[in-house]
Design a protein around this nucleic acid. Structure first.
Length: 492
RNA sequence: GGCUCCUUCGUCUAGUGGUCUAGGACAUCUGGUUCUCAUCCAGAAAAUCGCGGGUUCGAACCCCGCAGGAGUCACCA
């Protein structure tokens, strides 16, 4: 590698080690996936590492299979990790429940230096203290009730940090300069009665062991930061860059988006026909922008352009309409830039059942003429049925059509027959030729496009909408198209 | 209640003292693209920049108050 000076620039691009550290209590939803996306972007941008760590220290809230759900979500979005479950790494294990002795080793240091103590106080007694404070309307701080001669630590006893109340100042990359008073420092629990560490303690130890440089997480941890700073100091650790991510708000009300508001899992959107690219794009830009007017970003562009200091400090409301728009943009982008086949590969599983009897080649043809009206891939299911199965003839739909209402049934039948006759003579059954013939038919019958085309379109599809008539006819093929026109002529 | 954060069109946002009679995008509405639905294109409507003071020749941008909203005060993360 060649160094040409400019160390300041190299310094700015120091390799960041970031992490996503969910607890396996269920699926990942729109509201919390940003804390995976942003760390990922920072890691990739700086050529650093992304760590996935499973914070499973709460054995009561643990949900079987949740880890797999999390991994599945990240993989779908294209957020790969360099260390963590499946891929391993030099700082494992990556499940906190398998790191108990590490936490115990670390907490020993604090116990030995007098910065932590084993707490023999019963939960009932603590509740009493709390009630006492509530009654007097003073803040409940456990350090005011600290036991005087703490015993030696033994199993079944929690360990608390011995707080040294003071004023803390720090910088949050999103919220700016922060400052809090001693009232924010307390004797927080480090190791629970069951021997498992609390989040408050475990994440400090793990981040240090894993070399994490940027701690990016939801704002709900902002007010606990003084206690984390106390721990960094007690261990003599360098503070990582602290990044608080504002909440995503539910579509209505002012609450953060959560499962209770019906926040769907991220992968549910996959099943609904949302593309991973669109999801990533939408989520990354919810509460972040690069200052330009660009709206559509590839993952690579996000990696290149993302910057922590342009993350909004206020919460952003989740708006599914915009996601849908963006998905449509992505469907078209993939088709236009990568071709019909590339888009087709994404549509597997979204076709109507009857499409299964047809060749891939035929389905691609259908896709090529309907793709620009898809909002989600799942739209294929209700939009393309007539390409695969003869529609139910519905005379009323024809007769009642707003352009055909003024024509008698005999006239309609006649028009249909003339159309069949004309179309039978088409030499090459291609969109261009069909358009020519359709135009000739227009002059021969002296009908308006609205009348003639509506009639043929309806007779052939019986659908509320369809692609341009010549394209629809081309894909349907001569035999099918003519047979359907005849069937309608007979039914009238 | 204490502490902390937040506040520009309905929504996501641009904006760091004069170029802001506030720009873009989604959504909405109108028109165009030989039928429909959509795409695409053009256009419209939409924010007295939460409120009140102050600093300044000049404030969305700086300062102070207030209000509203949110978060947090667990042996949950």
């Amino acid at each position: 590698m060649l160094f040409l000076g400019g160390s300041a620039i190299i310094g700015d691009m120091e390799k960041a080690i970031t992490r996503f550290a969910p607890s396996p209590t269920g699926y990942i939803h729109i509201g919390n996936v940003r804390s995976a996306i942003y760390p990922y972007l920072v890691a990739r941008q700086t050529g650093g590492k992304m760590v996935l760590r499973i914070e499973d220290t709460d054995r009561e809230r643990y949900v079987d299979g949740a880890t797999e759900l999390i991994e599945d979500t990240l993989k779908w979005l294209g957020l790969d990790w360099d260390e963590g479950p499946i891929v391993g790494g030099e700082h494992g294990p990556y499940f906190q429940s398998e790191r108990l002795d590490i936490y115990h080793t670390w907490v020993r240091k604090l116990l030995d230096s007098g910065r932590a103590y084993a707490d023999p106080t019963s939960p009932e007694k603590i509740d009493e203290y709390r009630r006492e404070c509530n009654l007097k309307k003073v803040p409940f701080l456990y350090r005011n009730f600290r036991p005087e001669n703490p015993p030696k630590w033994e199993a079944g006893m929690p360990i608390r940090l011995k707080a040294e109340p003071c004023e803390y100042k720090w910088h949050d990359a999103v919220m700016g300069d922060m400052r809090t008073g001693p009232e924010m420092c307390d004797d927080i629990i480090l190791i629970k009665r069951d021997g498992y560490p609390t989040y408050n303690f475990a994440h400090i130890v793990d981040d240090a062991e894993m070399g994490v440089t940027h701690v990016m997480r939801g704002v709900e941890y902002l007010s606990s930061t003084p206690n984390y700073l106390a721990l960094y100091d007690a261990f003599g650790l360098k503070r990582p860059v602290l990044v608080s991510l504002p909440h995503i708000l539910a579509p209505t009300g002012n609450k953060k988006l959560g499962k209770r508001d019906g926040a769907k899992s991220v992968t549910e959107y996959r099943d609904d026909g949302i593309l991973a690219e669109a999801m990533l794009n939408y989520l990354a830009c919810l509460g972040w922008n690069d200052g330009t007017e660009q709206e559509i970003y590839t993952k690579e562009e996000l990696i290149e352009k993302f910057s922590i200091d342009r993350i909004q400090a206020s919460g952003a409301r989740y708006d599914e309409t915009k996601l849908l728009w963006m998905n449509g943009q992505w469907i078209r982008k993939i088709f236009d830039e990568q071709g019909a086949h590339a888009l087709y590969e994404r549509t597997v599983g979204f076709w109507p059942e009857v499409a299964g009897d047809y060749s891939e080649e035929y389905r691609i043809k259908v896709l090529a003429i309907v793709y620009d009206r898809l909002k989600t891939l799942a739209d294929l299911r209700d939009m393309t049925g007539y390409f695969f199965k003869d529609p139910q003839v519905d005379v009323d739909m024809v007769v009642g059509n707003k352009f055909l209402k003024k024509m008698s049934e005999a006239e309609i039948e006649d028009l249909l027959k003339k159309s069949v006759g004309k179309l039978m003579g088409v030499q090459e059954w291609t969109a261009d030729k069909l358009q020519e013939v359709l135009n000739e038919l227009l002059t021969e019958t002296a009908k308006k496009p609205a009348e003639l085309f509506s009639l043929i379109r309806l007779a052939v599809s019986f659908a509320p909408f369809s692609p341009a008539l010549n394209l629809t006819l081309e894909v349907l093929g001569r035999e099918v198209a003519l047979a359907r026109l005849n069937a309608v002529a007979e039914a009238i």
